[in-house]
Simulated scan of single mutants.
Amino acid sequence: MPRVFNFSAGPATLPEAVLRQAQAEMLDWHGLGASIVEISHRSAEFMQVAERADADLRTLLAIPDSHVVLYLSGGATTQQALIALNFAGAGQTADYVVSGHWSKTAIRQAAPYVAVNIAASSEEDRFRSLPGREGWRLSPDAAYVHITANETIHGVEYRTTPEVGDVPLFADFSSSIASEPLDVAKYGLIYAGAQKNLGPVGISVVIVRRELLERSGQHRAEIFDYRAHAARDSMLNTPPTWNWYMLGLTVRWMLEQGGVDEFARRNAEKAALLYATIDAGDGFYRNEIEASVRSRMNVPFFLHDPALDAMFLAESRAAGLMALKGHKAVGGMRASLYNAMPVEGVRALVDFMRDFQARHG
């Protein structure tokens, strides 16, 4: 059957060109006679894959030499605990800004290891806005300040980098990395699960300022120590080699498509098209997020009558539009517009939305 337009929030749609290349190379990688997933991570062949992926990611994100890139097993939630262990002393304060579900998750993972200061929160507003920087209550001796750059569930996104003084800024970019130009130098640490814009689930990217690796942090096993992973080029243990290979293919595809500047243009076009359709629906559809912080990556929306939700989902799926159901914490609908979602997919979605409204409005 033909491929559908997959609006899943993650694991998310991957570029068809990447999937086809992986399919073609699955049994025999470059004449090796074996799959890339079957060979040693320390072999010359896999080292070639890893080095190319790293060089391409550095080019794509314009990562300065001041920052190390780690490729680690697991997802962003794992990093949320490791960040506290690696960069804060036992009981030291860390500042967290709460803007949605994943901000709160980050706090839960860090709380056993740091004294969490909630510097600001938009929970009273049901996460329909971001806490204004002027109201943040930062700690003068904090180990770091943590933000979630884009909230996948609630659909809010930082459109500028907040200024936090001399304290390093840490950010979860899982659902918006590589979607537009990013000044990596402004951050002490950026982390991202790959399964939105960078590749498949099961591998995370951590971009950390080299000087921060000198912090002693807390007592921890070597496998939880970022310094040890950096010293071994992310091969302290056997890495998720297939995921790393797929990440490399995805990053190379993004470079071939024009890099983050081109994806910023496409993502702005996609988001504007969908939000305009929601806003023009005379109340049939609604998005409750403050316009200035609406996410370009994840667009939650609601129908005026929840009784229509099941019909909307069934009919959209029949029309080749997959995974539009909103997260259970919010309800309604959600369309995720990551880099691999083509503009044509969003056009198909808004055409369906207009037709559905005409038939059921």
Rank of each mutant, 00 (worst) to 15 (best):
H327D: 15
F173M: 15
V156E: 03
K104I: 00
E262W: 09
E157D: 09
G33Y: 06
S8K: 08
P112I: 10
L57V: 08
A230T: 07
G258M: 07
H67A: 07
A178G: 10
A88P: 04
G188N: 02
L72I: 00
A84Q: 05
S292E: 13
L130T: 04
M246C: 05
A171P: 13
M333I: 11
I203L: 15
F312R: 00
T250P: 06
A271V: 09
Q21K: 13
S179G: 15
S139I: 02
R265H: 12
E256C: 12
R210N: 08
P240N: 04
W136Q: 03
G258S: 07
T105V: 08
N86M: 04
R42D: 15
V97G: 00
G75Y: 08
R317K: 14
I63T: 05
I278Q: 08
Q92F: 08
S216E: 14
L337A: 10
V18P: 03
A185G: 11
E269F: 07
P300T: 08
H30Y: 10
L337C: 12
R294L: 11
P2A: 03
V260I: 14
A314P: 01
A307M: 10
E262V: 12
E25N: 05
M47I: 12
W29R: 15
I203D: 03
D282P: 02
V260R: 04
G10Y: 07
V350G: 07
A323Y: 07
R265S: 11
A81C: 01
H30A: 14
R227T: 04
F170N: 04
Y245W: 15
G74C: 01
D65Q: 13
A106C: 10
G258Y: 08
Y245T: 09
S40N: 06
A106F: 06
A88W: 10
E124D: 13
T13S: 15
G326Q: 06
S121M: 06
S73D: 07
A307Q: 12
L247N: 03
A194G: 05
L321M: 03
Y158K: 02
E45K: 03
A115G: 03
S103V: 00
R128T: 13
R42E: 15
L324I: 06
V68G: 01
W242A: 13
R286S: 15
G89L: 00
H146R: 11
G74H: 03
S295Y: 03
T77L: 11
I190L: 14
N117R: 13
S66V: 00
A84Y: 04
L255C: 10
T93A: 11
L321F: 05
T13H: 14
K270D: 05
E269V: 10
E123R: 02
N267P: 01
I207R: 00
G75K: 06
P306D: 09
G259T: 08
M47R: 14
A335P: 12
V343N: 00
A76Q: 04
Y275L: 10
E344D: 15
M297V: 04
T152Q: 11
R215K: 09
M26P: 00
L85C: 03
Y158P: 08
